[in-house]
């Protein structure tokens, strides 16, 4: 089977709903199969609230651990952060800030996209 590069976007703020965590479970599932897909994990819109350093990660720690071991970083869109008054210094250490233009470049690079 052909391996693919999949762009996952996270669009919902954490808690109150389960997208933040079930999306990560799907990311790990997609990377772990025999097809060996690769992924980008990008937080946009209200999704960027997950990347704040104070966010509890009890549920998602195992998925995030797996992704970190695979060399993946979480990416947060700068324009979405700015629109919410979030300074990069407020973000968790494993988060990389990228521009909207960078996200579009990731769209171009992806073979498939999945939104949570």
């Amino acid at each position: 089977m052909a391996e693919k590069h999949v762009l996952f976007t996270f669009n919902h703020a954490p808690y109150g709903s389960i997208w933040y965590n079930e999306g990560l479970r799907a990311v790990v599932g997609v990377t772990s199969g025999i097809d060996e897909h690769t992924v980008d994990v990008v937080y946009v819109g209200d999704g960027v609230y997950f990347t704040l350093k104070g966010v509890e990660r009890t549920d998602s720690a195992k998925y995030l651990g797996t992704l970190a071991k695979g060399g993946y970083k979480l990416k947060a869109e700068r324009e979405s952060l700015e629109a919410r008054g979030i300074d990069p210094s407020e973000l968790a250490e494993d988060v990389e800030v990228i521009s909207r233009a960078d996200v579009v470049a990731l769209v171009d690079r992806a073979d498939a996209t999945i939104d949570f």
Partner: peptide, 23 residues
């Protein structure tokens, strides 16, 4: 093309990308 399928609520995030995306 990059065919953006925009629904709700995530659609507004996709719209912001589509605005910047030449393709």
């Amino acid at each position: 093309a990059n065919l953006y399928l925009l629904g709700a609520p995530a659609g507004r995030n996709g719209l912001a990308l589509a605005e910047r995306d030449e393709a």
